[in-house]
Design a protein around this nucleic acid. Structure first.
Lengths: 144, 144
DNA sequence: ATGCGTCGGTCGAGTTCGTCCAGCATGAAT
DNA sequence: ATTCATGCTGGACGAACTCGACCGACGCAT
């Protein structure tokens, strides 16, 4: 499916998505047009979903991170789903199997804000909140 | 801390980190040198942490995603920490407060692989695994 | 074996983009 | 009021991207 060159290209871009085609090409051992073509195909195939940035939440004014598990009360699933999507402090959320229906990552400015947001959710769901103390594994690619 | 232009720049880059400086500049209403300078300062200040890609795990051969909560057995914390970091299928992991010490996101090819990896962890920790059914909120920026 | 089509690659030319520099406007401090 | 610092613009130069043409390797059928 992916050959060695594609893997190499993905790894280089994962480390720095803004490298020039020229640099990408020579790090992968190709000419620029070839690298550009492979890049195009990776996007076309949907393997490569997009280019984005990684920000430092603390430097943006969000020193506190929490993982919140959310179990909607009976009949509230859709409403809770919408509430989560419309809460901008929730920066990612998965719907999962098991008792906890959602697992969300939240960024907040302080405990007061965390409390406010959780109160709003608690009207429609049980929640279980863990404060993030550190991040042993930062977002990375799986084995290619 | 950040002004309106910086926010705009971050949003544009979050949507597409590979836009040309020229395009970034005109979407933000600036000249290229100004946009370049602001970009440089955002990186320098550490607000902007880096440029990366978003991949489609399924297209990479990982159709299954799981959220695993990990509670190391007494005395095993450091060993479990290392095991997590050295498991490449774990693509992100936070250390959190509460009974569950770690919350990890895992990508696997199938149930068998999930089982293998969890067995390895289960020698040193209790685990609680939820399969991801969908992702209501894909990674996004908090309010700026 | 030979010829043919396809795929993926390089090379070179034209165009676009990024970076550097000089000059100007604004606002704060002396 | 003058001065200084900051941040912006516009133009010029060098670098990077894109497009077309061409080449070689491979698979396949004759």
């Amino acid at each position: 499916m992916l050959d060695e060159l594609d893997r190499r290209i993905l790894e280089i871009l994962a480390a720095n998505a803004r490298v020039s085609l020229k640099e990408l090409a020579q790090e992968a051992g190709l000419s620029s047009p070839s690298a550009a073509e492979r890049l195009r195909k990776l996007e076309e195939r949907g393997v490569l979903d997009g280019f984005t940035i990684s920000v430092n939440p603390a430097r943006l004014g969000y020193p506190l991170q929490a993982v919140v598990r959310v179990r909607p009360m009976p009949g509230m699933l859709h409403i809770v789903d919408r509430l989560i999507q419309e809460t901008p402090e929730i920066v990612e959320c998965d719907k999962v199997t098991g008792d906890d229906c959602f697992v969300a990552k939240m960024l907040v400015r302080d405990m007061a804000e965390l409390d406010t947001i959780l109160d709003r959710i608690a009207e429609k769901a049980q929640t279980n909140t863990s404060i993030v103390k550190s991040t042993p594994v930062k977002r990375r690619l799986p084995p290619l």
